[in-house]
Design a protein around this nucleic acid. Sequence first.
DNA 1: GCAATAGTTAAGTGAATGCTTGAGTATTGG
DNA 2: CCAATACTCAAGCATTCACTTAACTATTGC
Lengths: 111, 111
Amino acid sequence: MLHDPAQLDRMFQALADPARRQMVDRLSRGPASVSQLAEPLAMSLSAVVQHLNLLEASGLVRTQKLGRVRTCQIEPTALRAAEHWINERRLAWERRLDRLGDFLAETKDET
Amino acid sequence: MLHDPAQLDRMFQALADPARRQMVDRLSRGPASVSQLAEPLAMSLSAVVQHLNLLEASGLVRTQKLGRVRTCQIEPTALRAAEHWINERRLAWERRLDRLGDFLAETKDET
DNA sequence: GCAATAGTTAAGTGAATGCTTGAGTATTGG
DNA sequence: CCAATACTCAAGCATTCACTTAACTATTGC
């Protein structure tokens, strides 16, 4: 389920918004309630809840409600999936460059 | 300029679209012309050019025109910036978990 | 019990996005 | 020279997005 392309899509989509990235950033320093997440953001609590729902649907954040407080946490495995996608592409490119370098060095030797 | 928040924003924004990610994926396997990028995509060439312009503005892709052919390449340093942002947050969370584990182990010893 | 707290839900709005079509501009092979 | 190629640019359009406000529900502390 980590490599579900639709899930990857929701994840990158979720990370595309600066407010949501700020929320992820805040959560990387420890769990927080919805109000705590909202506090530094210049928008209504309702807007924050909507962002949070998206983050949860994307798998980046997990939440649980105790009483009237919803506590939010980062889901590191989801972050790792996004990280991995980018890393794979970058490495593929860099490996290609290396092979090209090797090839050029070789053909230069053959003078 | 790699840590310009506006640039990071454009980058995550660029990666949020599946067509654009498919283009990055294709480019990770080597340079390509606009038409080559368009070939597997179910949309007009014009649409592809619009995606490409966004990718270029985000710094993820560099292009150069020779004659009538625009050749596109990945810019790995930009990919690295996105990767780095995610990685930092994930590591911050995981380090926090480790410290928490240590604390729990310590307090358990003190019985 | 009742007011304050913490969050939820729904409806609406304006701006941004992802396309399309159509008309144009260089370049290039024959 | 001229037709095919390889884009490029500008409008227009439907959908999605990021909000807002307003009304509502569920806890908690006194």
